[in-house]
């Protein structure tokens, strides 16, 4: 596990800064919660909307925007926090093989007695572990900082765990796609491109298809729908928010490793 440890070590300083950034986002979000909690007008407006439109705000199933689960789901879990984690996953995933090959640093490492498959697998595992730590850091900071703002009222441990687990698997899927793009092409760019298309396309499609009340099977083709379609904070653990993305992530990883194993290095 030399490559795993090395990859982890190389990225731990950056992880610290990312964690700090996520904590700041949590703090800013929490600080504004009391003002929302005390104003009912926006919530009434949302309640008057048709159900599909409400669903695009994550307000389906009678969750109020001024409640803690409603507020945090909209302000954190379906916006900035998710976006940042997905960006971290994409940047990291594209660099695992594509980035280091583009920099030229991969070749000398592969002059050592290590197989390409093992190198790629260890780096993917290292990124999965780093991503888990980042999510854990965000979860812990929320857990510690939310009570003074009464921002965990109506959210139990299961709901919190479900939301962070869904977030983690969604980000992991994007990391896997970015890794595959990099591992197949030997450059960062295609990794960024593939995963960004999934991120931007998936997010937009989730909103539009939900608002248009598209058939369930169409919406279910979209990993972002798996994560966003119910307020996990309010309704708790959901297999469909975690398992499909996790299983699907195996596909690009396997494809990336298979291609990287035998192709010419650049």
């Amino acid at each position: 596990m030399t490559i795993f440890r090395r990859t982890f070590r190389d990225r731990r300083r950056a992880l610290l800064w990312w964690t700090l950034g996520l904590v700041v986002i949590n703090v800013v979000t929490l600080v504004f919660y009391p003002t929302v909690r005390n104003s009912q007008s926006f919530d009434e407006l949302v309640q008057q909307m048709p159900e599909p439109l409400r669903a695009t705000f994550g307000m389906a199933g009678g969750v109020s925007l001024s409640s803690a689960p409603g507020y945090l789901w909209v302000r954190l879990f379906s916006s900035l926090l998710t976006a940042l984690l997905v960006v971290y996953a994409i940047v990291g995933g594209a660099s695992l093989v594509g980035g280091s090959e583009e920099d030229g640093t991969l070749e000398l490492i592969l002059a050592n007695p290590i197989s390409r498959a093992s190198l790629a697998a260890q780096r993917v595992l290292a990124l999965a572990a780093l991503l888990a730590l980042l999510v854990l850091g965000s979860a812990l900071s929320l857990l510690l900082l939310a009570p003074p703002f009464s921002a965990l009222d109506g959210i139990d441990g299961a709901g919190l765990a479900a939301a962070f687990a869904g977030l983690y698997t969604l980000a992991l899927l994007h990391a896997a796609v970015a890794f595959a793009g990099g591992a197949i092409s030997g450059r960062r760019g295609p990794g960024f491109a593939a995963a960004t298309v999934l991120a931007a396309g998936g997010f937009l499609a989730q909103g539009l298809l939900t608002a248009a009340d598209a058939p369930g099977w169409v919406r279910n083709l979209n990993p972002w729908h798996w994560y966003l379609h119910t307020n996990l904070l309010a309704f708790g653990p959901s297999v469909s928010a975690v398992l499909p993305a996790l299983l699907l992530a195996v596909v690009p990883v396997a494809a990336g490793v298979a291609s990287f194993r035998r192709r010419d290095l650049r």
Binding site: D103, G104, T105, A111, N112, P113
Partner: peptide
């Protein structure tokens, strides 16, 4: 990988992090 265990390689341009 086993074939490379007994090899030392000095590249023309050293690309290391």
């Amino acid at each position: 990988p086993g074939a490379r265990r007994r090899v030392g390689y000095l590249p023309a341009e050293l690309a290391i992090d």
